[in-house]
């Protein structure tokens, strides 16, 4: 079956601004990955088409892009997940600088992630065995620890669009991951980072992040838990 991809192209060496180009590709069935169709374009029609990809099954987080107006991973979106009767529109993640075609500059995203001190801090001498933690407490972290840093959430968030200094849902989720870890001792420092107008308070529960997250993490719920924790600390 023939499917049309309408891909946003931009090569800074050649183009003054992005434009769209259509490719007609051959898909086996509705279970074809969008990533495989992009690879087909690159390998058969136009080697200059540029995008990131690696694991091809939604765990490395390389191929976040906008497919028919929704932020998704190209490798975990199948044809049947999108309307393929019309040309499938593929664009880079919105609101961050484009490097080339579907490749975006994630450096700001990573900087925000690093700002929340995304590592366990525990300065008391460790026991000889593991630090005990109930399965219940461990499981509180699992959903947030699923994050693959693909950037789909932060670039789908209207608060991020309007305020580039907003730390964004991905970084807030990472803050949750450590603030609520019973083994961690630096919750306060981390809460200081997100307790600013550009931190957790910029989240207005719009839920775009939840809709965008390819790992189906309820990010807004996690941010709300953080806000509650901040409020408790303040009072």
């Amino acid at each position: 079956m023939k499917v049309t991809l309408r891909i946003q192209r931009y090569n800074p060496e050649r183009d003054s601004e992005p434009y769209y180009q259509e490719f007609i590709v051959e898909a086996g069935d509705e279970k074809e990955r969008i990533l495989d169709l992009l690879l087909q374009v690159k390998w058969k029609f136009d080697g200059t088409l540029t995008f990131r990809r690696s694991c091809a099954h939604g765990i490395c987080g390389s191929d976040g892009m906008r497919i028919n107006g929704k932020n998704r991973l190209a490798c975990s979106s199948l044809l049947r997940d999108v309307n393929f009767k019309k040309p499938i529109v593929i664009e880079p993640l919105p609101s961050i600088p484009i490097i080339k075609d579907l490749v975006v500059d994630m450096s700001d995203f990573y900087k925000k992630y690093e700002a929340v001190k995304p590592y366990l801090v525990n300065n008391s001498p460790p026991p000889e065995h593991e630090r005990y933690q109930s399965n219940e407490d461990a499981e509180k972290l699992f959903e947030s620890a699923k994050c693959i840093l693909c950037g789909c959430c932060t670039t789908s968030c209207p608060s991020s669009w309007s305020d580039e200094n907003y730390i964004g849902p991905a970084a807030l989720l990472k803050a949750y991951r450590f603030v609520f870890d019973t083994r961690d001792e630096a919750a306060d420092e981390r809460l200081d980072v997100v307790d600013t107008p550009d931190g957790a308070w910029r989240c207005h529960t719009i839920f775009n992040c939840v809709e965008a997250c390819p790992k189906e993490i309820n990010i807004t719920w996690h941010i709300s838990k953080l806000k509650k924790r901040l409020a408790e600390r303040e009072m």
Binding site: H129, R131, N135, A138, F178, R183
Partner: peptide
């Protein structure tokens, strides 16, 4: 090596006693 990873902060599934499952 496993204990060290745990001390580094790796989130493990746990046994009912809170040990690494």
């Amino acid at each position: 090596a496993i204990i060290e990873l745990e001390h580094m902060g790796m989130p493990f599934s746990r046994t009912p006693e809170g040990k690494i499952a």
